[in-house]
């Protein structure tokens, strides 16, 4: 067997997961449509006053993104678990943590990145300023990978359990609260005319920390779930 470089391994797994996701496009679209629908539910629920909605918009978009990303977590490992691919990955000589990292990357590309793209359109519905929309995109770009990374650990821990979907949310949501606070906080500070730098820096710091530790923890969780 020829030697596989680190980047080669990552691109191999990412490409495989992307191809699989493209074969089942409906799954990808459900997350996106769920996001759009939840955001549009809020004006119906709290009334259409523009003044209030403009104030709520950052938090609202962020909460919806958080919920939407919970929705797709169960799928991250379950298909591979059911057809035995996951066990093969575990047996492979390459590091499981790197495989997990690339799976997370692929998962983010199909479920997190579309949210980032569609968010400005939703923000416009709430009459957000152009500057706030930019910051909203940046925070989501930094934040959604964190949600995927933390969510991966939850998905790995609950792999193959009954009622796994609700349980994942119960485990992962408390851990995601800081991301929500800083993400929505950055947008709100721009809206009220303060520099968003500190919130963005904290968000970036969480991303780096999570990327460094969580794949390793997730790999460990997978080993526990599959032993």
């Amino acid at each position: 067997m020829n030697q596989l470089s680190l980047l080669g391994l990552i691109s191999l797994v990412v490409r495989r997961d992307l191809v699989l996701a493209m074969r089942r496009r409906a799954d990808v679209l459900t997350t996106l449509i769920f996001f759009v629908m939840v955001v549009s539910l809020f004006p119906l629920g709290v009334g259409p006053e523009m003044e209030m909605l403009r104030k709520m918009a950052p938090g609202l978009v962020w909460v919806s993104a958080l919920l939407a990303s919970m929705l797709s977590l169960g799928r991250m490992f379950s298909a591979d678990y059911l057809d035995g691919t996951l066990e093969q990955m575990m047996l492979a000589p390459q590091s499981l943590a790197i495989v997990v990292l690339s799976k997370i990357l692929a998962h983010w590309m199909v479920s997190g990145f579309p949210l980032v793209i569609i968010a400005p359109v939703l923000g416009m519905q709430f009459d957000m300023s152009a500057q706030a929309l930019w910051v909203l995109m940046i925070t989501l770009l930094l934040g959604t990978p964190i949600l995927s990374v933390i969510g991966a650990a939850g998905a790995a821990l609950t792999l193959g359990l009954r009622g796994g979907g609700a349980l994942v949310s119960l485990l992962v949501l408390p851990l995601c609260i800081p991301v929500l606070i800083f993400g929505a906080g950055a947008v709100e500070s721009v809206v009220s005319g303060i520099n968003a730098g500190s919130n963005l820096a904290l968000l970036g710091a969480i991303l780096v920390m999570a990327l460094a530790f969580m794949p390793w923890i997730t790999a460990h969780a997978l080993r526990i779930s599959l032993e």
């Binding site: 821990l157 408390p174 923890i217 032993e227």
Partner: peptide, 28 residues
């Protein structure tokens, strides 16, 4: 705490339950 208890309760095999919820406790 609730997440820890819920995860522990939903896994049948006590060995796996211990180890999975241990990992969660450490993350938390």
């Amino acid at each position: 705490y609730i997440g820890f208890i819920a995860l522990h309760a939903s896994i049948e095999d006590p060995r796996r339950a211990d180890r999975a919820s241990a990992l969660l406790a450490i993350i938390g």
